[in-house]
Design a binder for these strands. Structure first.
Length: 285
DNA sequence: CCTTTGCCCTGAATGC
DNA sequence: TGCATTCAGGGCAAAG
């Protein structure tokens, strides 16, 4: 599932293979893929045609491609979204949702998304500035790999929340880019249980948790991200290698890499949390 | 205002 | 074998 490292790998792929190219034609094969576009597929297509793609940007799990005139193509991969740069001759996937053809007649940019939680849209940015964030992303916090992420402010805000620590890590308005996988990894590294109230964390503990989240995502990015099946691949269809380095996520019943205790999986918010029952003690009820 | 819940989706895995 | 159910989960609207 694409979280920050996986989206960053895709962003880099777009920078290399799509930036600077001019859109000749757009095809939307599933309306849900452009549901964020107020004017639907027709508007999406009309706004893209003839535009030259700028340098792709990212905040958390969102990415966008500046198009000039204050417009950007904003994308989110959701659960299963892929942006693929493929030769026109390559057969379409049954889950192909949108296609951009370029004026140079070379490779196409294809948006493939099995579960249709992802999407694309052309939107306004606040200014015609490469730093400008699309208006619709104004509520998304900076991510821990952003040089302007404010660590002390994060620690303060985290401790002021009336919630539990894993919920807070997944709150994209507090810290963006962290999903279920890297949340579990950061908590394991911090020896924190997912249900620990944020208000009970000391300031150093909050900063340590942030550091671990940053470290684990940096390490994952260095090896191309985490791939389990074909749910996440880079723009060339290649998998990342971080799944073999995961310490918590998906390791139910396998020994904790720190203490050897069998790892457990708990149902949590209609999904799963993986933790070590010895290293990550639950808070008192 | 802040936090929590439910919904959107499809295919693989599991249950009977 | 085959049909029905469960699970995966990010983001947002709506409820609490």
């Amino acid at each position: 599932m694409p979280e920050l490292p996986e989206v960053e790998v895709v962003r880099r792929g777009l920078a290399r293979w799509a930036a600077g190219r001019t859109v000749a034609d757009v095809q939307v094969l599933h309306p849900r893929a452009v549901r964020r576009q107020a004017g639907g597929a027709d508007e999406f297509t009309a706004l893209l045609r003839g535009r030259t793609l700028g340098t792709p940007q990212r905040r958390g799990k969102y990415l966008w491609v500046p198009l000039g005139d204050g417009l950007s193509m904003v994308g989110h991969l959701g659960m299963s979204g892929q942006l693929l740069v493929q030769e026109p001759e390559m057969a379409d996937s049954v889950h192909l949702r949108a296609r951009l053809r370029f004026a140079d007649g070379g490779t196409e940019l294809r948006f493939v998304d099995q579960r249709t939680f992802g999407g694309l849209a052309v939107e306004e940015a606040e200014a015609d500035d490469p730093e400008a964030t699309p208006v619709s992303l104004a509520h998304i916090a900076r991510d821990p790999l952003d040089p302007r992420f404010d660590d002390p402010a994060f620690a303060t805000a985290l401790r002021a929340k009336r919630t539990t620590v894993k919920r807070a890590l997944l709150d994209q308005t507090l810290i963006s880019g962290v999903g279920n996988i890297y949340a579990d990894e950061a908590l394991w590294r911090s020896r924190l249980h997912y249900d620990r109230p944020t208000a009970t964390l000391t300031r150093p503990a909050a900063l340590e948790l942030l550091g671990h989240a940053r470290d684990v995502m940096t390490a994952a990015l260095a090896v191309g991200g985490t791939s389990f099946d074909s749910m996440y691949v880079n723009v060339n269809g290649e998998s990342g290698y971080f799944s073999r380095d995961l310490d918590a996520y998906g390791r139910e019943g396998r020994p904790c890499r720190r203490c050897g205790t069998p790892m457990r999986r708990d149902p949590w918010m209609n999904r799963s949390s993986y933790s070590c029952p010895k290293c990550q003690r639950p808070p008192r009820a």
